[in-house]
């Protein structure tokens, strides 16, 4: 983290890239437990910035401190140059917020809810504006439905619409796609990409590495309250010596060492009958593996290779898997 961030810090000072959010040494404890441990963050203009981490990493706590919903125990937060800890109300006008869990007022329709929230910001409540917001999140057909009649994906899109009522410069989305089916998730990615195209800065949290990889311009990887890496997804992956993972189904009870000793291999493991070999040189390792298989008469079923991804980055940094 230190070298890349120091570099970024240096460049952003000299170039025109503006940091819209700056977080320095932010920390938060719940009793004796440290949920957010002295983190530094810098979010640039017009980017989608992702915070990737497993459940309990401290993502929500971090976001909600910036949003003015939780009080930090120390550190500094600046949003558009405003001290967010001293003047949370000025910040609230600038930002749009989607919380990780909210259900909304029963008995109001989607349209009425959007109009109500627009009014709470003293923003435009005209029906043209509501139509525009509905279209932005593709909820035109549901405008007269009650919030509790919407599917999970539609509810998430509604809460994104609510985060946009004040036409904010910065939008915070806390796990916007958690619990959605793959189709709904992809739809939401389109909506979020559309927001960046409309010139908004987006800060989102996720525990899906694929989402961070596809959607985010930059990703901060968070674990146990600390930011352990922060860069573009590509550079994070490239920073690994690992190139890919080779996977295959094999007979049980094999000796692991013979795989670990193959050329190019970083590590190998077998879970039940699943062999996975991490390598920094797919071609060399794969060739050697196939030779070994012929030699010891080993059958490799469903042989496949996957390129390294953020999951591997997380594994490499923490020794644990993202999902557990």
């Amino acid at each position: 983290m230190t070298s890349t961030q120091a570099q970024r810090g240096a460049t952003s000072d000299t170039t025109a890239i503006r940091a819209v959010i700056q977080v320095v040494q932010l920390h938060k404890r719940y009793g004796d437990f440290t949920a957010v441990d002295h983190i530094d963050l810098e979010v640039g203009d017009d980017e989608i910035f992702g915070i990737l981490g497993p459940n309990g990493a401290g993502k929500t706590t971090t976001l909600e401190m910036i949003e003015g919903l939780r009080e930090p125990d120390g550190g500094m937060i600046e949003v558009n140059g405003i001290d967010a800890i001293r003047e949370p109300n000025r910040v609230k006008h600038l930002i749009g917020v989607q919380l990780q869990t909210t259900s909304l007022f029963d008995h109001l329709t989607v349209r009425e809810l959007i109009a109500l929230f627009a009014a709470l910001y003293d923003a435009d409540t005209s029906s043209e504006r509501i139509d525009q917001l509905l279209a932005l999140v593709s909820l035109e057909e549901k405008s007269d439905a009650r919030a509790n009649q919407l599917s999970g994906g539609q509810q998430q899109r509604l809460s994104i619409a609510l985060a946009l009522v004040n036409d904010p410069e910065i939008v915070f989305l806390d796990e916007p796609t958690t619990g959605l089916d793959p189709q709904a998730r992809r739809n939401l990615w389109d909506v979020i990409s559309g927001l960046r195209a409309a010139g908004k800065t987006i800060v989102l949290t996720t525990h899906y590495m694929e989402e961070a990889e596809v959607l985010c311009d930059r990703v901060a990887i968070m674990d146990t309250g600390r930011i352990i890496a922060c860069d573009t997804p590509l550079r994070l992956i490239q920073s690994l010596e690992q190139e890919a993972t080779i996977r295959a189904r094999v007979a049980r009870g094999l000796d692991l060492d013979q795989f670990r000793e193959l050329p190019g291999v970083i590590d190998a493991e077998i879970a039940e009958d699943q062999l996975s070999i991490r390598t920094h040189d797919v071609q060399t390792s794969l060739t050697a593996l196939l030779a070994l298989a012929t030699e010891i008469d080993l059958r490799l079923d469903n042989l496949a290779t996957t390129n390294a991804n953020l999951e591997d980055v997380f594994l490499n940094l923490t020794g644990r898997s993202l999902r557990e």
Partner: peptide, 9 residues
């Protein structure tokens, strides 16, 4: 819902 309101001005 109260927290959602709190997130607004």
């Amino acid at each position: 819902i109260l927290r959602r309101i709190k997130a607004t001005p």
